Computed example of a mutant assay.
Amino acid sequence: MQKLFKISSFYLLLGLIVGVFYREFTKFNNFTGTTSLGLVHTHTLVLGFMFFMIVLLLEKNFLISQIKNFKAWLITYNVGLIYLISVLIFRGILQVKGTDFAGLSHIAGLGHAILGVSLVWFTVIVNKAIKKYDEKNKAKGL
């Protein structure tokens, strides 16, 4: 559980840092339009910090880390999220500088796809953990 808390805390810190970066970078460059940098703060806090706080609660109640492939899921999800955050930051910097290029949308789409698959995979893991929990309690007569 400590590992999940540390991951959640990492995304909290990262989310706060990118929020400050967004504000200061656009102000420094006198940029007033919309940019994908504005999305990074929220994506990081919701898909990183808040999501892993929920995972932590599910671990405490249903021991989801004992389900087969949980570690592989954890790595895949984090790779997808870091990839997505990185591409959003890169694209946002390009937008502020006025040098955005069209092909970047397809590159960003890969991060979304990895996260989408990871979220479905996570749902399967949670479902298995709940079934295991229910079977265990049924055997105890609860």
Rank of each mutant, 00 (worst) to 15 (best):
S86V: 11
V124Q: 10
G92I: 07
T44L: 03
Q2Y: 02
I114Q: 04
Q66S: 15
I67M: 08
H43A: 08
H106L: 15
S105L: 15
E24P: 03
N78D: 02
I85N: 05
I107C: 01
G19N: 07
T123L: 14
F28I: 14
F51A: 13
F25T: 10
L45F: 07
E59H: 02
F52W: 09
S9T: 10
I107D: 04
H112T: 02
Y77D: 06
Q66N: 15
S65T: 15
F122W: 04
L4Y: 00
V96G: 03
T44G: 03
L58D: 04
V120S: 06
Y22N: 12
M1T: 06
T32G: 10
T32A: 14
V120T: 09
N29L: 13
N137Y: 14
V120L: 14
W121T: 05
S8V: 00
L88G: 03
G48L: 05
I85G: 02
V55W: 09
A129Q: 05
F90I: 13
L104Y: 06
R91V: 02
L13M: 14
G98C: 02
K131N: 12
N78L: 02
M50N: 03
G80N: 05
F122S: 01
L4V: 06
F90W: 13
N69K: 12
F28D: 15
L47V: 11
L37R: 04
K132W: 01
A113E: 04
L47A: 11
F21G: 04
N29P: 07
I107K: 03
I125G: 03
Q2D: 12
S86Y: 06
Q66K: 15
K60E: 11
L110H: 01
Q2C: 00
L56I: 05
Y133H: 14
V124K: 10
F31K: 01
H43F: 11
N69H: 14
I125C: 03
I17G: 06
I93K: 07
L94Q: 14
G33C: 09
G80Q: 06
T34S: 15
A129P: 01
Y77C: 03
V87W: 08
F49M: 05
F62W: 04
N69C: 02
Y77P: 05
I67N: 07
K136G: 02
L16E: 06
K128R: 14
K128Q: 12
I114K: 05
T26M: 10
Y77F: 10
H43Y: 11
I114N: 07
F5D: 01
E135H: 06
N30R: 12
T35P: 09
I93H: 08
K27V: 12
L88F: 12
K6I: 07
M53W: 12
L104W: 05
F31M: 05
M53D: 00
L110N: 00
L13S: 12
L4R: 01
A129D: 01
A108C: 01
S36V: 14
F101T: 10
H43T: 09
I82L: 15
V55Q: 06
F49E: 01
L104K: 07
Q95S: 05
V55G: 06
F90G: 07
I54E: 01
S36C: 09
L56Y: 15
G109Y: 03
T32R: 13
S105C: 00
L119C: 08
E135A: 14
L57E: 08
K97Y: 11
M53L: 15
A129K: 04
